[in-house]
Amino acid sequence: MRGTNAVLGATGLAVFLALGEAVPRLGLVKEAYFPPVARIAGALGDELSDDTFWTALGDTLTGWALGLAVAVSAGIVVGVLVSVVPYLREATASTIEFLRPIPSVALIPLAVLLYGSELRSVLLLVIYASFWQVLVQVLYGIQDLDPVADETARSYGLGSWARIRYVLWPTALPYVMTGVRLAAAVALILTVTAELVIGAPGLGARIAIAQNSQAVPEMYALIVVTGLLGLVINVGARTVERRALAWHQSVRGEVAV
């Protein structure tokens, strides 16, 4: 079964690439707008041998990793604090519900004013967007804590800190992992977007340059790179999640994306 699925998948991919080669060559779309796959692959090869490409990739990864790390730490700390301190959860609920749906791109003009096209504008956007993903999941996770488990721990004389470590944390961990996975995806999107729109150094800026100089195959090649990067991050996050939660058999119905 797994074998057939893999074969089918590979076939699907091959068909997709073949179409990508055939459609422009047959003139169904203008080659200027959509170069054949072979030409994109060539441009990709050129990119990979270009040092500036690797610098840009490094910049993107730096922004992503740094922003994600800060967002995850802040999200966990604030989430735990809000849940553990009495009444804080109810008091902050309305604020969170209001701030959450605010699109982070609304802050782009502010970031530009404050930090121009430095790394810090990227971080502003990435941290703001990813923080909410982590926070919401942490709040769900702690809310899911089984009061019976907590009472049992308390009856055995475990203090607050021990309870957080042995009862609260394992309950919340699956949710935290989900939050990290979602935040990782969002962080990548915002990193590249910030680079694209503001011009901070990275893959996004490189795409903007390619666009300005009408280097269409290079543009597509870079898009493929960002797609692969996103793919690696998604798959990586899911693998980490599976490994870390190997002991946790229940599936908390999370959304597919």
């Binding site: 999107i189 590249v192 977007t193 795409i207 903007a208 390619a210 543009m219 898009i223 960002t226 797609g227």
Partner: peptide, 11 residues
Amino acid sequence: RAIPPPVLIPV
């Protein structure tokens, strides 16, 4: 789906 959507704007 892994491609960050804003990146497709130039295309």
